[in-house]
Design a protein around this nucleic acid. Structure first.
Lengths: 249, 249
DNA sequence: TTAATAGTGTCTTTCAGACAATATTAT
DNA sequence: ATAATATTGTCTGAAAGACACTATTAA
């Protein structure tokens, strides 16, 4: 087996042709609702369908390919401005035979958490890309609905154990803004008072800037204190969602 | 971009040749210590080095490829006997350019939890495969040390939130056997009394068989009650490791 | 003034962990 | 008998969640 591997390595055309792509589940919060970045496919298969942004992996790491695709679709430059604060992590890979009718395609999916970004500019490389409310996303091309669902699961879970909710907001934020992130991702409202005390009690989750907002809420209320992300990488103790019966089975 | 994708799809040789493989981090408990299945490489590169079992993905799902490789290396048949109780899940993918000097290789790594399996038979397809104590594993070929480390991290974490510790033991087991699984994977002893009460308090983790062991421990002690895995898919509340300061940073 | 919101206080219940105690069994 | 182990009991402190309360601000 090893010898065969070795010999085959000298003639790549011996392999069944496999393409490796990256697909990105990029999430952000807009108007209090969770949005995902989708592109409209120009050509077959699934022409005109919505799909996750993605493309072939070039001579680069998988992480770099994902970041490049995200930058291309948003029209932003990697590592610059708002894109510099994007959290990007590998989700999982999808490689069922037949998931792309043209040929065997193994896709490495990535999950991105972004603060509110400008609308993608229909430009050079950018196809018709847009932030779409997750709740209103229709059918997706290929197996992208599955990938999106897996990404949402991962995102919901990550908010429990990590401080990544802060990557959805600006560099300075209020506790209420953070709570709205949790509410949008988890799809359920959280008790303001308990959430407030909980966030401040977790070491390294947030740290105070000493400043407050310049004015209260739109419909009244006191000025809120501002915080920035702390140095914690994991939340101890975690912010657990209420246990649902579906999980136990 | 989409047009180029479409056109390229008709001429696979246009792609830079990429090979897709699966590598399996198969873990089991032997003599109270965590072991990983390793093979000795026969040919270059890394001839004579130890490596994770793996190979090319054929016309099959990624999961099927991982199960096939595991079956080949252990000499067991997939879905049969002990292999039928193996837990197999995708870990993550590794695709840095240069991780294999011969060509671009993207590897989809899998994590397997197995009850104690017989020693692999050096047979037809099986190379020199063996269960090696994780603590005593030396350097590994390619980036397999990284993959193993990621697999161990995942395994340690999975024991916290899922009942997968039961996949390391037989269909019937004592609470003490389960505790030894946790001790071996986490690398720390657990308080017997507290662990016992905790396991029984989590709904669906284990269920009693009504039987007991036929004799006590080797060095004395009462007979222990026997349990089988329950129907829980997640542990609520979870069995958390003590929080370590390294996590917060 | 009114309504909304930020932030704090309090109480109950659950749970983790330390520790003790008892019963059972191999040697 | 002795030592080891299974199992249960008790206590303390941390933490989650329900709820109430005060202070502040926009309209």
């Amino acid at each position: 087996m090893d010898e065969r591997e070795f010999l085959e390595s000298y003639d790549p055309s011996e392999f069944p042709p496999v393409a490796v792509t990256v697909d990105v589940v990029a999430l952000t919060i807009r108007d209090g609702a969770l949005h995902v970045l989708l592109v409209e496919r120009g050509g077959p298969p699934f022409a005109g369908w919505q799909a996750l942004p993605g493309g072939f992996v070039l001579d680069e790491t998988l992480d770099a390919a994902a970041l490049r695709e995200l930058a291309e679709e948003t029209g932003l430059r990697p590592g610059e401005g708002a894109l510099g604060r994007v959290h990007l992590e590998q989700l999982r890979s999808y490689g069922d035979p037949g998931r792309d009718a043209r040929m065997r395609v193994v896709s490495v999916a990535y999950l991105a958490f972004a603060p509110s970004l400008p609308d993608p500019q229909a430009g050079s490389d950018a196809r018709a890309a847009a932030w779409v409310p997750v709740a209103g996303a229709g059918e997706l091309a290929f197996d992208h609905a599955t990938i999106l669902a897996d990404g949402l699961d991962r995102a919901r879970s990550k908010l429990e154990y990590t401080p990544l909710a802060t990557t959805f907001v600006g560099p300075e934020f209020t506790i209420a803004e953070l709570r709205h992130v949790y509410a949008a991702v988890w799809g359920e409202d959280l008790h303001a008072g308990n959430f407030h005390r909980k966030v401040l009690s977790v070491p390294g989750f947030v740290e105070s800037t000493g400043e407050t907002t310049t004015r209260g809420g739109e419909r009244g209320g006191p000025k809120a204190r501002l915080y920035r992300a702390g140095d914690a990488r994991l939340l101890h103790p975690a912010l657990l969602r209420p246990a649902r019966e579906e999980n136990v089975r």
